[in-house]
Design a protein around this nucleic acid. Sequence first.
DNA 1: CTGTCACTTGAGAGTCACTGTCAAAGGAGG
DNA 2: CCTCCTTTGACAGTGACTCTCAAGTGACAG
Lengths: 208, 208
Amino acid sequence: MTTAPRPATERVRPDVGLRERKKLRAMRHIQEVALDLFDEHGYAAVTIERVAAEAEVSPSSIYRYFGTKEQLVLYDEYDPMILDMIDKEPAEVDPMEAIRRSISYIAKEILPGDEELIRRRMRYAWNEPAVRSGLVRQVEEAEAMIREGLARRTGKDGGDLELKVVSAALVGGFVAVLEYWHQTDYRDSLDAVLERAFDVLSGGLKLE
Amino acid sequence: MTTAPRPATERVRPDVGLRERKKLRAMRHIQEVALDLFDEHGYAAVTIERVAAEAEVSPSSIYRYFGTKEQLVLYDEYDPMILDMIDKEPAEVDPMEAIRRSISYIAKEILPGDEELIRRRMRYAWNEPAVRSGLVRQVEEAEAMIREGLARRTGKDGGDLELKVVSAALVGGFVAVLEYWHQTDYRDSLDAVLERAFDVLSGGLKLE
DNA sequence: CTGTCACTTGAGAGTCACTGTCAAAGGAGG
DNA sequence: CCTCCTTTGACAGTGACTCTCAAGTGACAG
């Protein structure tokens, strides 16, 4: 979500030095500690200060890394992945189909490995209002990017009503899928649920 | 001051006494004062304390009435109206059609009267992240109620995937409509934009 | 009208997420 | 090894939001 800190002077590859690796390691560690504490005492009862103490960093650093308390739960790297994949689909592919494929691919190939962690984080996304609205915000940003992708593919303007409606409906549907998946205790594979949802959406929201 | 005609016992309707009327009047007044201040100094720069002072109530009361700062902007009475209308549509009417009619009716008959105020409030909903997420939350509540309505009409369970996807896509589309309407400076009537959006949704999100 | 009851309001103190600043620490590059 | 510049931590706010308690004030009965 929050744009990465932009270095004043562009170095050659600011992404791979010791600094960057240290930062990523620290973030993973902090998130882990935070989730442990949240699991034990509840999200609301754990202060940032507490997390900072437990993770042995300063509260300032947590804010610099994550921006907000919700992001301690929500932070992950999937969104850019999906967008990247959509852009890599060949231009001839139908736009909706490109999205469908990309999301399915992630759901099938990447997520299963992290499923434990994902479930753990999802619980908060549906039980803590603050986390929930952070999730929605994140999804909205993804929506904007999907819309831009669709705009490029179709030649339409990004502010076009049709595009807005389509991408909003898509991400709305996606959130519904996550909610269903969560509430049915991850019974079916995410991919299977996604397929059913896509069918409903492209079938014109007909019920039955 | 003439005493209003007071029915002997009024236990049945605790909603119309002097207390309730005073409260509603106070809420309207506070919201007005708040919007004036926000317009003049910007949302973030105005504290609740300031609003309270200007409106001559205590900050505690503002929290009791509105709960959060965003609700000072977002509070209105349309949502229950729409839900009420949906429920009143005859049972034979196609569910989607019932929703479409109810929303259109409100957009056509009720909103134009308050359009000035609505626009004023919309500006904050799209420029202030906090207000925005409050709006989303409100819309999500409406979604839950729409879904229940659909469940009753179709005999499906409220947790059904199809139902979730349909209602989420609908409200997603609705938010997109509001955004489009706002960003195009309220050029077209809300009703007209809604019609176009409904067509896209029931056409299966086909682009072009 | 009047007293009692129950609900509402205001005052005040407290918590905590989040921000901005500044000096110190420590990688990056020569 | 040394200089630069980014990152870190310490610190001091700010303001949204919560809780509690005492005082005020409509509702209602007698």
